[in-house]
Write a protein that binds this DNA or RNA. Structure first.
Lengths: 206, 206, 206, 206
DNA sequence: TCCTAAGCGAGACGGTACGTCCGGTCTTTGC
DNA sequence: GCAAAGACCGGACGTACCGTCTCGCTTAGGA
């Protein structure tokens, strides 16, 4: 499994969209921005989404609250940007391509389960689901990170090309079902039997 | 699809667990209890989980805050009980059994998608996911309501018996994948193409 | 000069105006009320009116901000009540009555000037004028405390009866002019020459 | 009563005190300065002293905040300069000299009371007292404007010369008492009976 | 018939966090 | 080098709820 580079989706340049600078005033402080994102990631990991507070972030980042409100409209926007930066979880779980689809999917699931099962990540992951439920962007980015968006589908498509999957297999549905399984699994807080990835692959890729 | 009776999981009797009565004092007020649950359901539907407040519920139910804290330990416990009572969504989506598994699953999915897609339910459903992420009980009850717990598995098992599914099909995994798909779908806030249930059944029940 | 008892204008009894108690809820906490007033008086004396903050008072009194907002609508209402309680300055400067009006007024002025000239009081007194400019109650109570309201007029009236002042002397105007002089004097931050009370009495009581 | 010319105390020339010009750079912008003073006067009249904000003034004057901070050290310095310019109230109330002191004083008081009683001025005047309590300059200028400083004393002195007042009358004390009366009167927010000026003159000029 | 214990409404209380406003400083750009 | 624009840290504002606590009823056994 290969993680795409954190920050590769970055979208902040310090300039106006057209590349010019505004008439007057200081430019946005990159230092403050990074401190805020780092504080958000740290406090999210420690306390979870609902105990995450703007005041706490501002204090941790040694920043005025207004500086947060100036650039992010809400707690969830802040979390969404952290997610994009890859500070909360690997920016994307991408299945490898060894040529054998079943093996690659199994390995991908093993990593995914390992991630969501690890105690340190588990409650944070669930918190992310809560955040996703409140904020569409977070939902989309989270789905993307877990692979449902495109990386997983691309791998499945290569499986079709290799004849390991029927040509008419509904790839997006398969991908969403896989990711959905992982989410339900994480919400259930049940452990992962070692053969689960195997069985799951068998169930969906007969 | 048949909905199980709301309240069939009810667990309140007005007496102590052993059937006796305490020495003195008033019994728990059934009227208050119902008013609280009704207020919770109404406010949850209107405002969602995170804007649901104990004070708001108490005011809406014309009840003292302490009466809520006396019987429920937290906001999420209250929501869990509402969910059990079926005040938030049908207490369970149960696939029918016409003998044709594919048809029954498709119809079950049609109803499920119809429910989560309807604007009035959509944000409330997502709020339930948020609540589930914070509270294990809600997660379990929600999963059960959506069918993953047992009703769906039972239907699948009868499909195996009828030879419509391989004898070694991993039923729990299939069930969780189906429910997971619905959850991801709801989080994505995307509409449902009419043929989606059909395609999904085809994808998972080849 | 005799000071009337601090608190003699007190107006809080812990009961409803009709002597009954409200239907439900705890009674107002006397301890919190006193702590708040004491904190206000202390911080006012130290920092002056404009640097007096509700948050500071709440912290000093170890009280929630809401407890202050529940009972007082504004910073100035709080200061007005402190003034009434006599925590900010003697609740009233009352001229003595030795039979000699000129002597009594002079002594009264000596004490008044001594009070407003003392460094510790001077800026607090000016702050009170600022507060009086914003809040009618404070203005009225302050005027009363300085004697203009009635105590001074009563003393002047006895002077009329003793033939030390013309029967048609406009007593309220004289009283207000005297108090007004003291206020302008305090605003000017100039010291008081020893013979000023004497000259002032001579100027107004010819 | 004659008003001295607004701006007659003006003290800004756009040049250094010695008449030279600084070495390089732009000169102070007269347009900005006037816009700031005008904005201050307008907002002061509308909102009063304590709701007057530097940011509000800057916005109203379409000026950067720094331009204000560069030239005035505080809100009260700004108000003091407005007062000097006569933008807040007539720069000085000066008693006329018809030869009859009692008449002139009465007329002067009539105008003063009329000014202070008018609703549009009343709260602004009180705000000025608040400002005076915080800032010595404002207190001095305000006292001067109201006449206590010198114009009133000069008129009284001519009364002495005309034999309408005893040669040993303590003029400064009388002047301050008169102005003090007006201030207490304004703080009390009570109306002015028509014969008040008459009675007041009678009380202080027997 | 009292006594007594609990349930209940009401709401005060000490707190925490909210989102906004403003103070005073600093930085950037343009004239 | 002044001025506009405005970002920045800090701190107070007044509000909303939290969860706990006390009140003064009411209610319903057991004595």
């Amino acid at each position: 499994m290969v993680l795409s580079q954190p920050g590769s989706l970055g979208h902040w340049s310090g300039s106006e969209p057209d590349g010019s600078r505004r008439r007057g005033g200081s430019a946005r402080s990159q230092a403050s921005r990074l401190a805020i994102l780092a504080a958000t990631a740290r406090l999210f990991a420690v306390n979870g989404y609902d105990r995450l507070t703007i005041e706490g972030i501002a204090a941790e980042a040694r920043v005025g609250k207004q500086t947060i409100y100036r650039w992010w409209g809400s707690k969830s926007a802040l979390v969404a940007e952290c997610l994009l930066e890859g500070s909360l979880m690997p920016a994307a779980f991408v299945p490898a391509d060894t040529g054998d689809l079943a093996v690659d999917l199994r390995e991908w699931l093993v990593e995914l389960f390992a991630f969501v099962d690890e105690a340190a990540n588990a409650s944070m992951t669930r918190s992310l689901f809560a955040a996703a439920a409140e904020n569409e962007d977070i939902g989309r980015i989270l789905g993307e990170s877990l692979g449902a968006g495109s990386a997983l589908i691309r791998r499945l498509r290569r499986g079709v090309e290799a004849g390991q999957l029927g040509v008419d297999a509904p790839l997006p549905e398969l991908a969403k079902a896989l990711v959905g399984y992982v989410i339900v699994h994480a919400l259930e807080r049940a452990g992962t039997p070692p053969d689960l990835p195997e069985r799951l692959v068998a169930a969906l890729l007969p």
